[in-house]
Design a binder for these strands. Structure first.
Lengths: 344, 344
DNA sequence: CTGAAAGCGCTAACAA
DNA sequence: TTGTTAGCGCTTTCAG
């Protein structure tokens, strides 16, 4: 099976390579209708697919964008990626996922790929960690199109598309206080590397508490991949907590199933408890399960719903605009996508 | 910020381009220690990253493999992809996900990318649909490395790595019958395009029923993305079912939350019911929620657990072996990864 | 309307 | 031990 390339098609159609290239790429050139058809026909006949390495090498464009995200198996990011892929495809781009595995080294390694000429741009959900600062700096200096999506790195001035995590958390806490919650316990996962999201939510919570002259009450939990199946550690942690809280602000809805299970196994099993969290709906199959479990609570349940689809599409559109230089874009813009409440 | 390429490094280090290439690629060449160090140092200084378009164009190798899968937001495939990425990365490859959106046209379009020279090989979870048959044929004729993972296309002879869906379903049905289930209802989602997996499970169920002189009892349900949130249709369907069954074989555990919710809203709410399904554990956060809900059932619950990690790693290893031609590989081999039961 | 030709950055056979 | 050189397949300028 011989490789079909422009040369072969040119020979077959009795024209030059140039003309084939121009016709197949829809470039404006005045070709006779018949030659054009002859070219298109032979291309079709051989099911011609351009060698993207060659065309990219010359044109400096691959029409591929990379998504750098920390964790794809489930939850927020897999949905985000799904919507980005869809949007990119609609606009004639391939979106490619590079998993950074929530690991600063992997992340830096992956970031360096911006120089590989493989990708026209990058959407990055980064660790807030600063170990990759110099790479970002280089990307900016060489005008490589990229923007942060949901999670960003501190000290790097760049476009960001996300929910307003700080405000969401601040408002939620205020709302909780207004609803009569007094001692709200902020629960968050203890990670080697803290994300900008977690940090902002924590800050929002703390500021709202202080603004109402309340004492912030915070507690970490741990949950490894094994724990997720065994569901042990989170329970242990819960039992350690002093009984000085009437509400829980779980920093991410992703952990709701684990939290509810842990709660059920803890000494707080029958406590009247209000629960607040931040989540996303969309394609999430867990939603129903969660609602079911929440129904059994004797307190209130409020969650903020993030609009993943709009986040994904806004970011994709903006990145592609940057790549194609269509419009003059304001630099280092923060775009916050509105959220909604769900109360049940 | 000037582009750093081999030429620049060669000039800087006062050697030829060739030598730089050889040294940076660790090719066996006898260089003096000092020149080698000088080359490595200048490369490091500029943070040199090779232009993969250029190197790929010449060497015909990109060290990138593509995963073609139908649906990434959650469930089986996102985990599968996660493990493939991890394994590929460990072996020096980048794994790139191309979502086929469960759409024959998109799938065929994506398959054609094998000719783009971007990917050294492909792992494919295909529709069983035959519309792409000719592409597969071409891939085989041009010796492009690929293999099917979990889902395959009928009539295409190729390597397959998956659970033995037929046997799993057959054995499960037998087990159910042995446990005293008499009238087992096989519930499956009505799709425009039926997958090989669904077909094999259905076949296994039917054959096992017939082997015990029982009447196969089957029913489809529908569930669109909107339904997933509203959870309407599945309930409607359930209410239509005649009360001639004592057990349900739900063809995929992915639908358990919806099924249980639907059950709860149906006229079978308090019926004693045994439930059988096929699922995967690993990173799946739903697991706990499901167990919780299943606890409320008054019948038995048995599920087959697929070993996603092993499926992913076996497939990745084999594809890379094919790419690197390390060993003589048997053609068109079906590799079945063992499963386990979970009874609760 | 169409073609010749240069060259993108890299690899590898061949020379020296 | 190191350098010369010929492409890989495509895009694009410039010349007919």
């Amino acid at each position: 099976m011989a490789e079909v390339n422009l040369k072969k098609i040119a020979e077959e159609a009795g024209v030059s390579i140039t003309l084939v290239s121009l016709v197949l790429n829809n470039k404006k050139t005045r070709v006779s209708k018949t030659t054009k058809e002859r070219i298109l026909d032979t291309a079709k006949k051989y099911n011609y697919v351009p060698n993207r390495l060659a065309s990219g090498l010359k044109s400096k464009k691959t029409h591929i964008i990379a998504i750098l995200a920390p964790f794809t198996p489930n939850g927020f990011f897999s949905e985000l990626i799904y919507y980005i892929e869809r949007r990119a495809m609609k606009k004639g781009y391939i979106a490619v996922v590079i998993n950074t595995f929530h690991d600063p080294k992997k992340e830096e390694e992956s970031l360096h790929l911006y120089k590989s000429n493989l990708y026209d741009g990058m959407l990055i959900s980064s660790l807030s960690n600063s170990s990759s600062n110099n790479v970002y700096q280089n990307m900016k200096e060489s005008d490589f199109p990229f923007l942060f999506i949901d999670r960003y790195t501190k000290n790097i001035e760049a476009d960001i598309v996300s929910s307003d995590h700080y405000k969401v958390s601040f408002d939620m806490t205020k709302k909780a206080l207004n609803k009569g919650s007094d001692n709200i316990l902020f629960l968050y996962r203890k990670d080697q590397v803290i994300t900008s999201t977690a940090e902002l939510r924590m800050q929002g919570y703390q500021d709202a508490m202080k603004a109402s002259s309340k004492n912030p009450l915070m507690q970490t939990f741990t949950l490894s991949e094994e724990d997720k199946i065994q569901n042990t550690n989170m329970c242990d942690k819960l039992n350690l907590i002093e009984e000085t809280f009437d509400s829980v602000f779980l920093y991410s809805g992703y952990y709701m199933p684990y939290f509810l299970e842990a709660l059920n196994q803890s000494k707080f099993k029958d406590k009247k408890l209000n629960i607040y969290t931040v989540d996303s709906i969309n394609l999430d199959q867990n939603w129903i399960s969660r609602l079911n479990q929440v129904e059994k609570l004797n307190g209130q349940f409020v969650t903020v719903i993030q609009d993943i689809k709009t986040i994904a599409e806004t970011a994709t559109d903006r990145l592609i605009d940057k790549i194609e230089n269509k419009i003059e874009l304001e630099d280092n813009k923060k775009i916050f996508i509105p959220t909604k409440y769900f109360e049940g």
